[in-house]
């Protein structure tokens, strides 16, 4: 009886989970589908054909042609892939380099106007990109950085969001531990490096994962600041795809998912803490 009740509870949950996972299945089945089959299903949406778009999770003639085409015949994909890797890693490094000390300073040092700065950070964090786009463009243009990767990297490096997440983690470190370190003769730098960073590692990692995902998926910034196509990240590859090579699009989407998935899996537990911390910010 208890099993039956348990099963009745799981069934809707499984259905819901399947619904949520459908895009993943959609992408995976699209990769192994023939081009003609994809045209048949997606023609009404992408090719202007009559009728409604449909989908089948099990391809009629499975093939890896799309994947091979992406890997062997699309050097453009790899140019954009490495551009994305470069931009994401630079952003992560920058955030680590500048965001961690900033968060530590805001969390652990008391100075005049600290609350005002914190409020400014929160306000800036809440501003969407569309608001900041024009000021950023003007500044980058003035600095001569437009149409270079720095135009995308630098604004992201000094983003307020990771500082805010790390601020929460650093703030939660008990003052007694820092006092003990001071008593043991540790200076501020030593306390930051040997006490603050290890104890706030969860916050740093979770902000890193969130920062990577954000930079990996960013579309508006490269579209706005990068004119030269060879500088584009992978996120701009998919908009270039039409019905003729929609299979290539699916394969590229799956390949694009892989790094994000690996990052996510490696820092899953920190990410959960980070998201929880972010949820507390309001």
């Amino acid at each position: 009886m208890a099993k039956l009740v348990k099963g009745m509870v799981y069934l809707p949950l499984i259905l819901l989970a399947a619904l949520i996972c459908f895009p993943i299945f959609f992408a995976i089945s699209g990769v192994v589908m023939s081009n003609w089959e994809l045209k048949e299903y997606l023609g009404p949406v992408l090719g202007g054909m009559d009728g409604m778009a449909s989908w089948s999770l099990f391809p009629k003639s499975p093939t890896l042609q799309s994947l091979i085409e992406v890997l062997m015949d699309s050097p453009q994909f790899f140019v954009m892939f490495w551009n994305s890797i470069k931009i994401s890693l630079c952003i992560l490094a920058g955030q680590t380099l500048f965001g961690v000390p900033a968060a530590w300073g805001l969390a652990r040092f008391s100075f005049p106007g600290r609350n005002a700065v914190l409020t400014l950070y929160i306000v800036l964090m809440l501003m969407p990109f569309q608001v900041l786009m024009l000021p950023q463009y003007l500044v980058l243009n003035g600095a001569g950085l437009l149409d270079t990767h720095w135009a995308v990297i630098l604004p992201a490096v000094f983003s307020t969001f990771p500082v805010f997440i790390m601020y929460r983690f650093f703030s939660s470190i008990p003052e007694e531990i820092l006092e003990a370190a001071r008593i043991d003769g540790a200076g501020s730098l030593r306390i930051f490096l040997h006490v603050g960073i290890p104890l706030g590692a969860a916050g740093i990692v979770s902000s890193g994962i969130l920062g990577f995902l954000e930079s990996w998926n960013m579309i508006e910034q490269p579209m706005t600041f990068l004119k030269t196509k060879s500088l584009w990240p992978l996120s701009l590859f998919l908009p270039e795809i039409g019905l003729a090579d929609v299979g290539v699009g699916f394969a590229a989407a799956i390949l694009m998912l892989v790094p994000a998935l690996l990052i996510f899996l490696s820092g899953q537990e920190y990410l959960e803490q980070g998201i929880a911390a972010a949820a507390l910010k309001g």
């Binding site: 890997l71 062997m72 015949d73 699309s74 050097p75 994909f77 790899f78 892939f81 490495w82 390949l255």
Partner: peptide
Amino acid sequence: VMLLFTVLSRAAD
């Protein structure tokens, strides 16, 4: 692997 295919695809291209 991505690096390898980068080289291969460029060569093919």
